[in-house]
Design a protein around this nucleic acid. Structure first.
Lengths: 111, 111
DNA sequence: ATTTTATATCGCAAATATACGATTAGAGGA
DNA sequence: TCCTCTAATCGTATATTTGCGATATAAAAT
């Protein structure tokens, strides 16, 4: 294939896919869970909780941040992360719109 | 790395990640959209709509089916697919549970 | 100034995913 | 029976992801 054809799809389709992709790994789900549970933002605590090396966790955090699912700020020698609730609401809303809305008229089984 | 450490996470984390992964590609989002829009179940129409080769579309359909997001049945010489609304509700519910529930108590900004 | 502590980044190896053409399989129709 | 149409699967090239150790960076502590 050589070429990934993401460009051939609509921006909204790409955005939804990117959002899903950011959550498409159990480690990142686990990170989001930790961030959601603790009111304050965590950094290296995540490394202690997850069964992964520090560098790997850092990489997952970077992906989540790039995707916009979490925010991060430097706090002295350590980094602080937290969930970007706005982004979450936006995407969850789009998923709901895309599928829940259509569900109503389609409820009956096909095939 | 050689080893994917999925096993090191909880079943629920793995399930959510697998669900997200199934939607982590714009082509699959587009397929789900088509299936959601048409009341009856489609097969090769998807190939006409998407800018991808038949074999590629078939592969995406297989992934969606394996992940449980769609159902498929053979109808003579052609295949018929439709969205598995039950699975959708289940996963959307889990996402909402995981994040919306926690949002309430965390609304304030951190970092 | 040196050492510790906390993170990010680099480089690499292995696993997966993406895409397509070619081939296969099965149902209908000529 | 032979051909056609639809869809799945195989083989393969390339791209991306995952994971870790090693290294770099930067603030705090000694």
């Amino acid at each position: 294939m050589a070429i990934h054809k993401k460009e051939a799809f609509t921006q909204k389709e790409q955005d939804l896919a990117a959002f899903a992709k950011a959550m498409a790994h159990p480690a990142r789900i686990a990170i989001l869970k930790v961030l959601a549970q603790r009111n304050e933002c965590i950094c290296g605590e995540i490394v202690d909780i997850l069964p992964l090396a520090q560098s790997t966790v850092s990489q997952h955090l970077k992906e989540l941040k790039t995707a916009g699912l979490i925010d991060g700020s430097i706090d002295g020698p350590r980094s602080c992360y937290c969930i970007n609730w706005k982004a979450f609401e936006k995407f969850m809303g789009e998923f709901s719109f895309l599928f829940n809305k259509l569900k109503v008229q389609n409820e009956k089984a096909c095939c």
